[in-house]
Simulated assay, not measured.
Amino acid sequence: MPSRLLRLPEVVARVGLRRSTIYKRMSDGRFPKCRSLGAKCSVWVEAEIDAWIENVVRSGNQADH
């Protein structure tokens, strides 16, 4: 099944982090980067978010990855 593109509200709901935390971790290289689909449209690849969540689970629930 192909991966979907997720908008910010869905990413926030899935990972339990606030918008500001997501963008801070993206800039630190600790969260998947978003893609721009236009001037005001950013999306994340669902498979990358799923992999990040799986990594958090595997590493002992440390969300700092």
Rank of each mutant, 00 (worst) to 15 (best):
S27M: 09
L17K: 15
A39N: 05
R35Q: 15
L8C: 09
R14N: 04
L17T: 08
P9F: 06
R7Q: 12
E46G: 02
D50T: 06
V12F: 01
R19F: 05
V15S: 08
I49K: 06
L8G: 08
V43W: 08
S27R: 15
G16H: 09
V15A: 05
C34H: 15
I53D: 00
G60Y: 08
D50L: 03
V56L: 04
R14T: 08
E48H: 08
T21R: 13
S36E: 05
P32Q: 11
T21G: 05
A39M: 06
E10G: 01
M26W: 05
P9I: 10
A63H: 07
P9S: 10
R14A: 12
S27V: 06
R58S: 07
R19A: 04
L6I: 10
K24D: 03
E10T: 12
E10C: 03
S20G: 08
E46N: 02
E48N: 11
A63S: 06
S42I: 05
V43F: 09
S42V: 10
E54Y: 01
L17H: 11
V56Q: 03
V11Q: 06
C41F: 02
C41T: 12
R14C: 01
R25Q: 09
C34A: 13
V57A: 12
A47G: 07
R7D: 04
R18Q: 14
R58M: 02
G60S: 04
P32K: 13
S27L: 09
I53T: 04
S27A: 13
L5G: 01
I22Q: 08
S59Y: 03
N61P: 00
L37F: 10
S42T: 05
S27N: 14
E46M: 02
S36P: 00
S20W: 07
A47S: 15
V12Q: 11
